[in-house]
Design a protein around this nucleic acid. Structure first.
Lengths: 231, 231
DNA sequence: CGCACAGTTGACGCACATCAACCTGGGTGG
DNA sequence: CCACCCAGGTTGATGTGCGTCAACTGTGCG
């Protein structure tokens, strides 16, 4: 039972407005918690996320996992692969997903990519890095509740930018375990923090639906400033 | 009392091998713990670090500070400023520094920068982002000792790449307080962790000199894989 | 000489982890 | 259409890594 207008986004917003998104050809579907790309693996295609959520992640030898990015529709899951054909990190799905495959120029003989491709890469890379630095601040210096609040503010804003969120709600089918691995916490503590946020009347996350009952308060708590998300 | 050959690096290595580094004009000197750039501030120049260490950082309203990057000679402190003229984060010195100023194209009228400039930006941005993602893994999922070990492995490798470190030692004049703000810890805990690493015979940091007594063991402890630092 | 900044150390507290049940709902097959 | 299953969520008891507070110790510099 989602609000009207949340299921589908205009093609215009979804293609990210650049050459890269338009370069996607074949579409593929993935189930939740599947790997799209393994670390170090070379591949002739990069992946444009069309629906659902994916993540970049890294596993330590004893099984600890850290998610370093959560992708929303319109994002390119393995951005650096567009340049080099390989990624240092693994890419996996969080929910059911459909992704488009972007053929990667073999880049043989040192022929540089077209300037508008480079420009698009630059813009996306800059934004990805800004998001990563914001996550660093959270993991290093914010409490569990602040971290969660900040992540939700960010995700809502990014989803709104592609027409997948209203001012105070969006579909967000992330498990508490996946949230924990993104936030550097455990699922148990994510659960308790969500309860705290809900009892404080700030927001609820239930059945895959995120509702912000008091978005201004939430953004104040998280010290959320959306300017880093601007293209 | 540093080992021979650590004080000066070949120009070749220091200029980063690309157009951006060669574009530096005026040199300026800074004392430790000074701001080079405030967040959101526009400026007609970007800054190439020539000697010393600087950092990108962010302050929260109650004074908590998170350092999101530590720069070494050859790095550009405010990389995104080369594109937009402004940075979201503050840049400050950690030690005494000398930096070169790189004039930023006003980029008026939508004339794109030269292709070799864009290529250099892309390469540096990609590397910066790889480092940031590695830090995310540390802040989210590594213990204090592992985090410190990983940071030192990374910094030694980056310094070695510009001729400022030998296989097992380098000059590193960072205060424990600055380390703490980079690692998401307190200076007290950094102090205790350093003692642990020293008593384990792995490494010492004293008087601005980092010595790795057992680098293989240190890299194993940190699960350090230097491939993400490759240009 | 004395101030200021950095490092060191100990006592104590807390946010978050760990461990372990138990609940819940939706998917599946008989 | 029910019986079962199982991934995900919830909750309580307990543990611990790191924070906090506070005092003391260098150490370089004006």
């Amino acid at each position: 039972m989602l609000g009207a207008g949340l299921e589908r986004s205009p093609e215009q917003a979804l293609d990210g407005g650049d050459v890269l998104a338009r370069a996607a050809v074949r579409e593929r579907a993935f189930a939740p918690h599947q790997d799209i790309r393994r670390p170090g693996e070379t591949s002739p295609v990069a992946h444009l996320l069309i629906a659902g959520h994916t993540c970049r992640y890294r596993l330590l030898s004893d099984g600890r996992r850290q998610i370093t990015a959560i992708l929303v529709p319109g994002d390119i899951c393995d951005l650096e692969a567009v340049i080099t054909g390989r990624t240092a990190f693994a890419v996996g799905t969080l929910t059911r997903c459909t992704v488009g495959e972007i053929p990667v120029e073999p880049s043989a003989g040192g022929n540089a990519p077209a300037p508008e491709v480079t420009a698009a890469l630059l813009a996306r890379l800059r934004r990805d890095e800004a998001i990563a630095r914001e996550w660093l601040v959270g993991l290093g210096r914010r409490s569990a509740v602040e971290r969660i609040a900040h992540l939700f503010c960010e995700l809502r804003a990014r989803l709104a930018a592609v027409g997948l969120a209203s001012e105070e709600r969006c579909e967000l089918r992330l498990t508490q375990n996946d949230l924990a691995d993104a936030l550097g916490l455990t699922s148990v503590h994510v659960n308790r923090s969500l309860r705290w946020l809900s009892e404080a009347g700030l927001m609820t996350l239930k059945g895959g639906l995120l509702v912000m009952h008091d978005r201004p308060a939430l953004e104040r708590l998280a010290e959320f400033d959306p300017s880093y998300l601007h293209r």
